[in-house]
Design a protein around this nucleic acid. Structure first.
Lengths: 341, 341
DNA sequence: GCCAACACTGTAAACCTTTACATCATTCAT
DNA sequence: ATGAATGATGTAAAGGTTTACAGTGTTGGC
């Protein structure tokens, strides 16, 4: 329909009275061409409305200037701000971002790899916490495309990682609860095969150990980090009749679930139960009570991850293959001193 | 680094003992090639690990199978689910999605158009509510790339639109408030130059007119649809001392702001004030009180928008250039009967 | 036994760049 | 005045597909 036959470099060359090589140089390496010529070319570009055909360019240069972002769930509230950071940095450096929503479906992961193998993307950002299915198995690591994990490290691999120190953050969070006088602290969202959950559980255990508190296994509940799983976890504790005075949740979504369960049972929060989350998603402050949590610097995480990936792509040696940003304790109103022992 | 020199169609052809043309056909038009040959090619493809180079393909076919999504703010909670829908449908049809976060910055809008003009994207999905800067001005509409607006229609243009009937939805919402006995109903988030806000304000006015209620101009407050603007709007009413019994907010984000303001003033909601939002963002149900609002079928909006765009791209005539999905009243706990007249 | 139709395959052009190499003119040191 | 170095430009190859067109062999109808 709108195929008006776009101007090519040849049209520009003809109009400027030079060869196409000169046009290319005038555009990409302006110093290598005489001033007068450069002006003629610039003029011709303007008059023809020429834009260089990215496909031809990518074909020739074997580089697409595109980055593929693989995320299990683009709708995750913890995702979007990181995405903005990624996109900002990429755009600043002349890269575009392609998004791939995998829903943790192995076939979709494999499917998206076609963007890499077909040269449509030069590198990969991983939110998934594991290598895309179809990449990890073969031992020829050399074949791995340049990639960086963000938010969640990739288990058992040396994929560069950008995020917060989840172990340390969880320890700080748990220590905050301890410092308020809590000794029976639940961990909601245990998931041994999710690296991020494992790290946070580790920090939780370390904090308790440091305070000389034994972990009551009945207070460590499995969950996938969803709101519903948080709700179910809290309910389970009531059924088992083994209650904590505080809940440390693997993330804010779980914490919301716990809060829903407790509100539904008409408890007065935080008087009767304290709740601590992790992530500081944008809605954490709008809950009632507003959620005390650990803040992830999401925008900066995104920027740093993209920066690292582009450094890798440029073939340069990055300062470090792991960027750990500081998470920050955000004290709001969901934590108080326990009313009973 | 991993430039192992990927297999090309020529390698496959050599291994299968056929010409490259046959390989191409075996892959893209299997019926046009003899069974035995097809098997040999398939075998060679498997053995070489060949994937077709998307750049070369796009260059030749003048089509990238990519869609550019232009959104003012990727972090908007109303955005992500639509994005999932867009992505799902695109992926199903073999398209990839490229995301462009404009932050309403005209220069970034223009900048992203390079993806279109350089053939890196075949079509455009617009969240912005206006034509990208750098596209609208010239009258040669013929040059416009295929595009579809989602969520917010594009003012004064015939860009196809997929979304809910915002006028009608706002009318239903307001009528609900009226049906509960409210007569002093505020509209929070007036923005005459935002089409979506105008439509919703229109629905609000229509509902009041239908009920024989005159609009009190002091109850119509400007705002950009942010949480902060909602908070400020509510505060303004207290300052002006012209209070409604119910707030109809242009979107959920504004409604949250109003709620924050009222909670801060220690009002008992919804007993003393009713609040109605629009969008049903994922957190609406987690607010206290949970938010009564109009639900947008976001996932389906995304799918429908992508479907429409791909239809356009295929050069086919779509059934309609406007797809209006039904928004649905979600009754929760933020609306009750007014306690005073 | 001949010709047309058909099924399959190959040849080569086209898609639009970037860039190594060659060419030519000019400058500068000697 | 000469040769080398420098600077500006041009020529042509390469990047990997798709596809119009041509070619070949086979089938089937007469």
């Amino acid at each position: 329909m709108q195929q008006q036959k776009l101007a090519t470099i040849e049209d520009v060359a003809a109009m400027a009275g030079v060869s196409i090589a000169t046009v290319s140089r005038a555009i990409n390496e302006p110093t290598k061409v005489a001033d007068a010529t450069r002006r003629r070319v610039a003029d011709a570009v303007a008059r023809t409305g020429y834009t260089t055909n990215a496909m031809a360019r990518s074909l020739r240069m074997r580089r697409s200037n595109m980055i593929l972002i693989l995320a299990p769930d683009v709708g995750d509230p913890n995702f979007s701000n990181i995405l903005v950071g990624l996109e900002t940095e990429a755009s600043k450096r002349g890269y575009g971002v392609l998004i791939g929503n995998t829903q943790n479906d192995p076939s979709r992961e494999t499917d998206y790899l076609r963007f890499i193998s077909s040269n449509q993307a030069d590198g990969l950002i991983l939110f998934t916490g594991h290598l895309p299915y179809g990449l990890g198995q073969s031992p020829d690591e050399a074949r791995l495309p340049p990639m960086v994990a963000v938010n969640e490290p990739v288990i058992g691999s040396d994929v560069p990682f950008v995020g917060v120190d989840n172990f340390e953050g969880a320890r700080i969070a748990t220590e905050h609860l301890v410092s308020q006088g809590h000794r029976r602290i639940a961990f909601v969202g245990r998931a041994p095969n999710r690296e991020i959950a494992r790290l946070r559980e580790g920090g939780y255990r370390a904090a308790l150990a440091g305070a000389g508190i034994a972990v009551d296994p009945r207070l460590v509940i499995d969950g996938e980090g969803t709101t519903e799983s948080g709700r179910a976890a809290a309910e389970l504790m009531f059924v088992r009749d083994s209650l904590p005075t505080a809940f440390f949740c693997v993330n804010d979504a779980s914490a919301m679930g716990v809060m829903i369960a407790l509100n539904a049972r008409r408890y007065d929060l935080p008087r009767q139960f304290s709740i601590m989350g992790f992530d500081d998603i944008s809605f954490a402050s709008f809950l009632t009570p507003s959620l005390t949590t650990m803040k992830q610097p999401r925008h900066r995480m995104g920027e740093a991850a993209m920066e690292l990936l582009l450094t890798l792509l440029a073939g340069e040696q990055p300062k470090s293959r792991e960027v750990l940003l500081r998470s920050e304790l955000i004290v709001r109103n969901s934590v108080s001193r326990p009313e009973r022992g």
